[in-house]
Design a protein around this nucleic acid. Structure first.
Length: 354
DNA sequence: AAGACGGGGTA
DNA sequence: TACCCAGTCTT
């Protein structure tokens, strides 16, 4: 039996039921694919359900504000996905009359849609014979064929894509693509796959040569930089608080936060804050800052290790504070703003009223 | 070609 | 800790 037939037979027995597998409509499939980039199904699923409920059609998503989209995306990470999602929704709704492109080539021109996602939508919705290559596919192919080319090298990306195209069942590219990804996710898992019950075991090079644990190969990742973040929570008795929007480049773009003072070393006193203050906040405000968490919160990202401290400044009335940057906004509805997870956790711990 | 970009699950 | 997850975009 051919490789793709074994895979599809396995899939028909083992496939999970997922909401985006009930349909061939591009909107929910596009939405799910964007959400699942570098994201486990278990983590993405509740967000998918939330989005479909809030935005049943691409027009509803297009009509929403970016702030609203980011708020619903809060906690899922890689926020450029949400910004690109919203951009593309507006493009499809207003420039394409709500009709998604129907080919791999045209889909790939959409913002946020790369090789994988274009292949997924083209095959799932329109049965175009194009092969998906995601983390699951890399792992399954690398092991089955015993390929040790690093999957994140330029050469590896080309090699695995070519191989995937060759293996594709062109009569049912949608089923085949689903099958190989599901196989990687459930059977050919990163750690301790249960090779004893694998339908491909007999021809699997990695199994026969005991290479399962060492494949796939991957180039070393970049090193993690450490940073010290001091968030200054300025509030009055009515729980009005200052927020600023992160703009420009860098993490958490277009999300909100308390005014931030970044320091090269850990700040222990309000004097330390003054030393690191980049002419952002008035000195008389900072002198009143009291440290909320003596032990910094360690917040790990894929490329950063953040040490986070929150400082509290209570004032009489927020709108009487002088010499503040114009970029700050005042709110007593902090729960309506999209914030990074580390700030959301503080908000819940501190007990802002909802 | 290498980095930037989040957060959570797992061993 | 370290690695991984239905990757894409920028430099």
């Amino acid at each position: 039996m051919k490789f793709h037939n074994k895979l599809i037979n396995w899939y028909l027995e083992n496939a999970r039921e997922l909401p985006w597998r009930d349909t061939q409509e591009p909107y929910p499939i596009w939405l799910s694919e964007i959400m699942l980039q570098q994201t486990r199904i278990q983590q993405g699923l509740p967000y998918f359900l939330k989005f479909i409920k809030a935005f049943p059609t691409v027009f509803d998503l297009a009509k929403a504000s970016e702030d609203k989209v980011l708020k619903l995306w809060q906690g899922l990470g890689y926020y450029s996905r949400a910004r690109n999602l919203h951009f593309t929704a507006k493009y499809v709704a207003y420039e394409l009359n709500g009709i998604f492109p129907t080919t791999y080539k045209d889909l790939k021109n959409l913002k946020g849609v790369g090789d994988y996602t274009a292949s997924a939508i083209a095959s799932f919705c329109y049965q175009e014979p194009v092969a998906v290559v995601d983390g699951n596919v890399y792992r399954a192919l690398s092991r089955y064929f015993g390929i040790d080319t690093p999957i994140n090298s330029t050469e590896g990306i080309k090699e695995f894509k070519t191989l995937a195209e060759k293996l594709l069942d062109k009569e049912q590219p949608d089923i085949y693509n689903q099958a190989i990804m599901e196989f990687g996710a459930l059977q050919c898992t990163p750690k301790s796959p249960d090779c004893a019950v694998c339908p491909l075991q007999i021809d699997c090079v990695a199994f026969r040569q005991s290479l399962v644990e060492s494949l796939p190969r991957k180039l070393k990742k970049t090193k993690v930089l450490e940073r010290h973040y001091n968030y200054i929570v300025i509030l009055d008795s009515r729980e009005n608080v200052f927020l600023e929007k992160r703009t420009g480049k860098g993490i958490w773009k277009n999300l909100f936060q308390f005014p931030l003072i970044e320091s090269s070393k850990s700040c222990e006193t309000s004097e330390d804050l003054l030393m690191s203050n980049d002419k952002i906040l008035p000195q008389n405000i900072l002198r009143e800052a009291s440290l909320y968490n003596a032990k910094p919160i360690k917040h790990l990202l894929s490329h950063r290790k953040l040490w986070v401290k929150f400082w509290i400044v209570e004032v009489e009335k927020l709108n009487l504070v002088e010499n503040l940057p114009k970029s700050l906004l005042i709110t007593n509805q902090i729960d309506t703003f999209a914030v990074p997870v580390v700030i959301q956790k503080f908000i819940e711990a501190y007990g802002f009223s909802k």
